[in-house]
Design a protein around this nucleic acid. Structure first.
Lengths: 337, 337
DNA sequence: CTGAAAGCGCTAACAA
DNA sequence: TTGTTAGCGCTTTCAG
């Protein structure tokens, strides 16, 4: 293994000079810099991560905590995680992957050992058990998702309340008066997951303001669950012409069942989805949708965190504005006889 | 920050004693052990990861490399990654997440810096550019997936050849004589992706042995592509009664189109899928399928790697036996008039 | 602009 | 069964 000392010797300079060439923390004459860089290349030197961490009390590692809930839509999580990893690298950080298994202990372990300099938490619940720990520790952190109380925390999320409002507005403009919301599995609401409740709040508030009737039904994924849910919806509200879906695994079943019942989309019924772009464009009907900007969320989370690590940085809630893309699944409400 | 020295002082023992209590590398009298453990708890001591890594040249971190190919099915990747992370923790390791961005350089960086003790590579291509590097380095590693040349490498994968054979056997037992295989997109075969070719090989070999007729057609995802493919299949082999699908995004279109053509599943036509459990159970017909055992693959990969790190361990190709689950999409071949 | 040297906190011989 | 001690490789004052 090549050490910094060996590089120094090879280049005929002191160890500290090599160190400073690497960190750029003080000015170096062009000639020595070149000699050092050449030695580094020639010897194939790689600074030792452990030694660096020990001497500088900085690991250059960001912990990313992904609680594994089976009822969450995985691809979005993955997309965010990948964006976080890529973003972190551009700032010189690596990502340590923590799954939910350990729960809050993982926070203690990582902060206590100096394994990571900071952490990003995904899939935050409204009253998340990891939050008290975060507030206590001095560990810089960013949440992806919004808890109930954001005091003293930095959060990045899609503005789901605005998302809900946007969906309702779109349908209202098209003349729909009775709207059904096909939501996430009931467990998601029972857990008081932030995004689900906030979307619902946005939907309800705007519907009330616009004088629309809104029916919300949680729904598991798959055909059977969707079939039952759909039956109930039309049973309770036969005049329903607008649907808002926020559940990736219910999208295709919904479309298939509507088709099967002879309800044409968008002629008889309009559908607006809150889902990843890919799901919206690859569905059997191209869906009017509000996309979850996974990449953007990952990128922004890293930026916030790096800002904190660099001393500029503030506790701030970053809500990304939703964008609704009109595709083939929404159209004017049918004229009622 | 609490250090080992402080714990030692508090407990009235030497630093090495505390170290040995922690590592268990030499026997300690029960009384001192208890005193030390108490001090650790009281002071809230956490060993410093950097110092440990430096002194022991062991980071207790495993790098997990996930190249992000857009045509791979993401949920399975994620499931494996999570299983890897969980498995690693049970052996005292953390996971460093590397995405494809950096390419082979990431391998160099991680091995060179001692950031990780070993690595797991996912989504391996038949002729992967990272393999030469791995063979050179002394870094222990395990591949998830099978490259063309496994010489000197440890690999974990589903036995796709056996998977193909299993699907054919199931349909043969039910009396089907004409089988159509709906495969991945043509590009996947052109790239000579290992799993696709191996599955096909298994299908063909067993079909020949059992005297069945087998027709293989690659197929893009989506309804249009599936519609064209299906038309060709029944055109060339009107007596086809058994289908094997290995393409998540073709599953639902296939079922929908068969239904549309008035071919009942499983009364007229049987379908066997090679896909994740979730896709099989949430499809419009619950699918008889061979699942990709993501959890098991992650777990096994970690086990192989830890074995190597502990000095017991061998270069070995671990092929997991496929399991076929019978559900509602397969049944006896219709009696021909 | 460069060097010398004191640690960072822990592990693992070597001694007892 | 326990203690002493010499590093591990790097960063960062303090001097020049």
């Amino acid at each position: 293994m090549v050490t910094l000392a060996e590089v120094a010797q090879h280049a005929g300079v002191s160890a500290s000079t090599v160190s400073y060439v690497l960190s750029g923390k003080r000015s170096i004459s062009t000639t020595t810099r070149q000699r050092v860089e050449e030695s580094i290349r020639k010897l194939g030197y790689h600074p030792n991560a452990g030694a660096r961490a020990l001497a500088s009390s900085r690991s250059n590692i960001i912990a990313l905590m992904i609680p594994l809930r089976t009822d969450m839509y995985v691809p979005v999580m993955m997309e965010i995680a990948i964006a976080v990893a890529a973003g972190a690298r551009t700032h010189g950080y690596d990502i340590l992957l923590l799954t939910g298994e350990e729960g809050p202990d993982a926070v203690r372990r990582v902060t206590g050992s100096g394994l990571a300099d900071a952490m990003i938490l995904m899939d935050v619940e409204l009253d998340d058990e990891r939050l008290p720990l975060l507030r206590d520790t001095h560990q810089p952190s960013v949440l992806i998702g919004l808890p109930a109380d954001t005091e003293g925390l930095t959060c990045v999320d899609l503005d789901f309340r605005a998302t809900g409002a946007l969906c309702v507005e779109h349908l209202a403009q098209l003349g729909h008066r009775d709207i059904a919301v096909i939501g996430e599995a009931a467990a998601v609401y029972e857990r008081h997951t932030g995004f689900a409740e906030r979307t619902l709040d946005g939907l309800r508030t705007r519907a009330r303001e616009l004088g629309l009737r809104l029916l919300h039904r949680p729904c598991e994924g798959g055909y059977d669950a969707m079939s039952a849910t759909l039956a109930r919806v039309f049973d309770e509200r036969p005049d329903t012409t607008g649907f808002v879906v926020q559940n990736e695994s219910a999208v295709e079943p919904l479309l298939a069942l509507l088709r099967q019942q002879g309800r044409a989309v968008p002629e008889d019924v309009s559908v607006v989805a809150v889902c990843p772009e890919q799901v919206a464009t690859q569905a059997s009907v191209r869906l009017t949708s509000v996309a979850v900007p996974a990449q953007e969320m990952g990128r922004r989370a890293v930026e916030q965190l790096v800002a904190k690590l660099d001393g500029r940085g503030s506790d701030e809630v970053v809500l990304l504005a939703p964008e609704l893309t009109v595709r083939a699944s929404s159209g004017p409400a049918p004229v009622r006889p």
